[in-house]
Computed example of a mutant assay.
Amino acid sequence: MTERVWHDVDDYINGLVIDRDDALDRVLASTVQAGLPEINVAPNQGKFLNLIARIHGARKILEIGTLAGYSTIWLARALPADGRLITLEADPHHADVASQNIAAAGLADRVEVRVGKALDTLPALESEGPFDLFFIDADKVNNPAYFRWAVDHSRPGSVIIVDNVVRGGLVLDAGSSDPSVIGTRELGALIAKESRVSATMVQTVGGKGYDGFALALVTG
């Protein structure tokens, strides 16, 4: 199997289960127009996040890493009318593009974009928790710190999803000098020894290449 096949199968799946959506199309177009990196989750992965949030009945969501707001919109659409999503974005330009996309999707009433490096903005959220669902998709170097914060500000039953934990298989390289690989391996070791969660990691292939995600359920 080749990456071309992975991409074509993604297109096939998206054609089956993803409806045409002007708001999400706007996000993808704005990503290109604003010169942002095209690293948003794939449409079928976005719907996966939406379904997890709906199945879980999440009312309060924290996202770390906003980019243009693609995954943000998928997650926010799963919230009830009085639900709330806070998303953290380090880059002011990205945050501005995302805020416009979120408003255009009619979700400004339940989504708040906070600008600044997550390690700097997280302390201001101390009183906002516990959160029902976390989606972590930001700089991989700090994933261990983000995961610790999520566990500390969760409740039994909270769900934590961390994206990009396989990195094309590079996670196998214990001697890697790549900071993102080092951070990802540290995250894996942390998850393995964290007694307050039950977790797994799943490999994925598709239009975004070969990667994977971690899924953790807070149990105590």
Rank of each mutant, 00 (worst) to 15 (best):
L36P: 04
D19F: 06
P130Y: 07
N14F: 02
V218R: 08
K193G: 02
I73M: 12
A118H: 07
V113L: 08
Q33F: 00
H56F: 00
F135T: 03
T31E: 15
A138H: 05
Q100T: 13
A138F: 06
N143K: 02
V218N: 07
T204Q: 01
L62I: 07
T219C: 15
T87G: 07
P37M: 10
R110H: 08
T219K: 09
A145V: 03
E89S: 07
G65W: 06
N44C: 01
I191P: 00
D120A: 14
Q45S: 09
F48N: 00
D132A: 05
R20Y: 09
D173M: 04
A90D: 01
F147I: 12
D25A: 14
Q33Y: 01
G188W: 15
F213L: 10
T184E: 00
N164C: 11
D137W: 05
D120L: 15
G106V: 11
L28I: 06
A103N: 10
G220W: 01
H153D: 12
E89R: 12
K208I: 04
I161G: 04
Q100A: 14
L28M: 12
V166L: 14
A68L: 10
L16M: 10
K193E: 15
G206Q: 06
P144N: 04
F131D: 01
L88S: 11
G207M: 07
L75H: 00
D109Q: 13
L187V: 03
F48K: 00
F147G: 02
R4W: 00
D22P: 14
V159G: 00
A118L: 11
F213T: 02
S198M: 10
Q45W: 13
K208S: 13
L24M: 13
I13G: 01
I61T: 04
A90Y: 00
A78V: 05
S177P: 01
E63I: 01
E3A: 15
T184H: 03
R148H: 11
Q33E: 15
V171Q: 05
M1I: 11
D120T: 06
I61Y: 08
G168P: 03
V218I: 11
R155V: 10
P179S: 11
H94Q: 12
V113H: 08
L170K: 14
I61F: 10
